[in-house]
Simulated assay, not measured.
Amino acid sequence: MTQRSATLVGFVAIVLWALLALFTVGTFPVPPLQLNALCFSIGGAIGMIWITYTKSWGDLKRVPLSVYGFGTLGLFGYHFLYFSALRAAPPAEAGLIAYLWPLLIVLFSGLLPGERLRSLHIVGAITSFFGASLIVAAGANFDAGNAWGYGLALACAFTWSGYSVLSRRLGAIPTASVMVFCIATAILSAIAHVFLETTAWPTAPIGWISILGLGLGPVGAAFYVWDIGVKRGNIQLLGTASYAAPLLSTIVLVGVGIADPKPALIASAVLITLGAGLAAFASRQTE
């Protein structure tokens, strides 16, 4: 698989993550960690079907236990910190801090062997961040009293960016290993749910459909294609392009009538597109 093809596969994850908010709204009143356990179970099932079809179960035996620990820590750690941050601080502010991860991916990628980080990569990532902030942090008002929640959100950003960048160093590890990450994350989420939440189930068919949609897409298949993208694709371009997720998510919500269109939408689209364009141009210069 060429770098360009792997990058395109990675873009699929960004498109799938754009559906995260839509499906999550439909899962009410299921609490976050219970939802995590259900969705990652479906995501793990996807991996089992794929591994069975490709007859690659033997590949999993060659994966070190440390890698399984790393992947599980990345997936579970990110979601646990994200949900905790949104409980400890206002969602807009916590969400904006958590969404520093694409910028951190671009910056950290410069530390990888064989990668060259240009100034345009950084400028593009920062430009796209400001574009995303127009959507994510509309009406945000930072308060020092929520410092704990902000800290959790920052830890969340470092967790996912670290997982994504370090995955690049594990290029020889088969993507099938993500199945184990998903199953382990589902188990840990279920345990955390028992101690931290009250169980609740969907009250209408749309709730179960939304859970299935999450497990098949944003909290399932997305992690497999993202693994391919960050291991074999253009990681700087993927990091910058990730800022399109909140924009696409908002467009989806507006399209189905859940959210109202805002003037900031156009400005956000322009900035995110400009940032991605700068990163793409910088990447072409390194080829």
Rank of each mutant, 00 (worst) to 15 (best):
L152C: 03
A245P: 03
S133N: 11
G239A: 08
L166T: 12
S128R: 02
T175L: 11
D260P: 09
I173W: 11
N141Q: 14
R169V: 00
G220W: 00
L237P: 00
V225W: 04
W148I: 14
G207N: 09
P218D: 14
N234T: 10
L170G: 04
I191E: 03
S161D: 08
F129D: 07
C182T: 09
I187V: 06
V165T: 09
G145F: 03
T175H: 06
T175M: 13
G162A: 04
W226Q: 09
L154H: 09
I235L: 04
V136F: 15
A157C: 03
G151F: 12
A259H: 08
C156I: 05
V254E: 06
W148P: 10
A241F: 08
S210P: 10
V219P: 08
R168K: 15
A176K: 10
T240M: 13
F195S: 04
G131V: 01
F130S: 07
D143R: 15
I209S: 09
R168C: 07
S177A: 13
A155P: 02
S128L: 05
T198C: 06
L237A: 03
T175Q: 12
F195G: 03
T199L: 12
I235N: 00
P202E: 09
F195N: 02
A137M: 07
W148Q: 15
L214G: 06
S164R: 02
T159S: 05
G239N: 03
A172L: 14
I173M: 13
L212Q: 06
A157K: 00
L166E: 11
F142E: 11
S161C: 07
I209A: 15
I135D: 05
T240D: 12
G239T: 07
L134V: 01
T250P: 03
I126G: 02
P205Q: 08
A132I: 02
G145D: 14
L216K: 13
L154M: 15
L247Y: 09
F129K: 07
I235V: 11
H193W: 11
C156A: 05
